[in-house]
Design a protein around this nucleic acid. Structure first.
Lengths: 128, 128
DNA sequence: GGAGAAGTTTACGTTAACGTAAAGCTGGTT
DNA sequence: AACCAGCTTTACGTTAACGTAAACTTCTCC
């Protein structure tokens, strides 16, 4: 029994809070390639996952090209040794970037903590 | 004894690996406002920190406008109660976003782990 | 004193990631 | 039959964040 659930472009747009224009644009850029029933686009669960990955990438400041590359990495057709080594190198670089982002986030969180504390202190002073 | 160290635009550009055009653009956008000796811009340590914050924001996908707001939050002139409450709300929202980004990073790291493991397995298979 | 390096202003060009509008097809409903 | 919601294509418009080029000053060094 296939789960053969499918989605219309409008459904996905609503779910992910983007416009249909956006989803079609991603298709232009080769990020998704839904099948068709006549003219109408039919999206598979895999397409839906791809959209999720794109939007996650966006939240981390990735360009569509970068997200596309990442998604390509997740479906590897590692045939020869050279390609596998290249893939490992890309993985290594992405990981380094994510680590950098982690540090950046932690630094920001710390600063937000400080600001909020000063904020709280200032409000307490107002009540005195 | 003031630390009164200053920087030229070229120095900062080299240190942060951006062009002078970029730094002048940030000035146009009101993110930094160096003093002048004649025509020439003189940057203070505070300006340098601001640049650092901007670039950190960029690494996390923040727009310049967002970074500007964040930097504004770090130098609060919390005079009245209403402003302090508004500031706290902004802090709260930023924090939520950072948490989201943390989750996104962790998910990506997990996926990179998986891909790399499959990559390693594939290379081992090639050697058999 | 001429050349070069580093600074300046002004201004037009570029790329990514869509927005927005126009014009048209299509399947169900009143 | 008419209408509407939702889909389609085509195409020009827009914003952010700079790039790039031209033309000019100012300082230093040989």
């Amino acid at each position: 029994m296939d789960k053969k659930k499918t989605y219309s472009i409008g459904e996905l747009a609503r779910e992910f809070d983007v416009t249909t224009r956006t989803i079609r644009f991603y298709e232009d850029q080769g990020l998704v390639s839904p099948s068709r029933r006549g003219q109408t686009r039919i999206y598979s669960p895999a397409d839906r996952v791809t959209l999720k990955l794109i939007l996650r990438g966006k939240r981390l400041g990735f360009s569509l090209a970068e997200s596309k590359e990442l998604i390509g990495m997740y479906q590897p057709q590692g045939d020869n040794r050279h390609q596998l080594l290249a893939l490992q190198e890309k993985i290594h670089q992405r990981r380094a970037q994510l680590e950098q982002q982690l540090h950046d986030i932690q630094a920001m969180q710390q600063e937000l903590d400080d600001v909020e504390q000063r904020c709280i202190d200032a409000m307490n002073d107002l009540e005195s």
